[in-house]
Amino acid sequence: MAARRSWVEQIMGLPVSVLARGERVDSARADAAVRAVFAELVEVDRVFSPYKPDSAVSLLACGQVGWDDLDPVVGEVAERCDRARELTGGLFDAEMADGRWDPSGLVKGWAVERAGERLREVSDLDWCLNAGGDVLVLCPSGRPFTVGIQDPRDPGRVVTSVARTDGAVATSGTAARGAHLYDPRTGGSVATRWLSVSVSGPSLEYADVLATAAFVAGDEWPAVLAALPGYEGLGILADGNLFATPGWPAVRSGAQ
């Protein structure tokens, strides 16, 4: 079995972990790459957190700054949010009903995917980067990592798993933070019989956006994934039943 090493930090209010696999997991180069990932995510949180009073998002909300006063990266994220709104037919929208701009539904996936480029620079190791259950996998060896899908009724249990050699898996639902997700169609919380929707595909940014939009869509969520090729989904109902799109890997209940 190949050597493994893991790192974990609390960033963005959630655990961010990196699992590396290969002969050079203890190298200074591997450690430096992971530290660069964490540093980049800390900086993204500083700029985009709606909970930090001096973040760009908070300063915009209270009118202390205008768009032209901000770092260009904020404008880039705003453009990405606009594209995500168009892609999902408005099911994803960073503009809140009260007029605030909150890009949280896109920023995490975008930031983790961007930070993951630091890991790609160490080409002789396999990596699994997990940000609070949204996962990016990079496996130059071609040997997959197994990504578990959490049971939204029991956070200590995995209901199924997905094997990936690259790409992403993102989940949206109410298990971690309750009914916090925003429905742009009503201006209120999402009302649905689904407990979670997981999306697997090539990009974590888009898997995250599509998972959010799919959860908002309710029973129509499979149609949301058709907006982009290469993305498949798994929904979990309140009674525990699972429903997968045709391209989702075979469901293996109780996988570890």
Rank of each mutant, 00 (worst) to 15 (best):
Val77Thr: 06
Gly75Tyr: 00
Asp183Thr: 06
Arg118Ala: 13
Val73Glu: 00
Gly22Trp: 13
Asp68Ala: 15
Leu70Gln: 02
Ala211Cys: 07
Ser6Ile: 05
Asp154Thr: 12
Thr146Trp: 09
Ala61Val: 10
Leu234Ser: 11
Val74Ala: 11
Ala32Thr: 00
Val112Thr: 13
Ala179Pro: 11
Pro53Tyr: 04
Phe92Thr: 04
Trp101Thr: 10
Pro15Ser: 02
Met1Glu: 10
Ile149Asn: 04
Leu136Cys: 02
Val251Phe: 11
Met96Trp: 06
Pro222Phe: 09
Glu117Asp: 12
Gln150Ile: 10
Ala213Met: 05
Thr160Ser: 15
Thr186His: 04
Asp71Trp: 05
Ala97Asp: 14
Gly89Ser: 07
Ala32Met: 02
Phe215Pro: 09
Ala238Asn: 13
Val8Thr: 15
Leu195Glu: 15
Val158Met: 12
Pro50Asn: 08
Cys139Lys: 09
Gln150Tyr: 01
Thr245Cys: 12
Ser203Lys: 12
Thr192Asp: 11
Glu121Thr: 05
Leu59His: 02
Leu204Glu: 03
Gly240Tyr: 08
Leu14Trp: 03
Arg4Val: 15
Leu195Asp: 14
Val112Phe: 06
Glu121Lys: 12
Trp101Val: 13
Gly89Tyr: 00
Ala191Glu: 15
Gly75Ala: 05
Pro202Asn: 13
Ala39Ser: 14
Asp219His: 10
Tyr206Pro: 00
Ala111Thr: 05
Ala111Tyr: 04
Ala30Cys: 06
Glu205Asn: 06
Ala94Ser: 03
Leu204Pro: 01
Ala94Lys: 05
Thr88Ile: 00
Glu113Tyr: 01
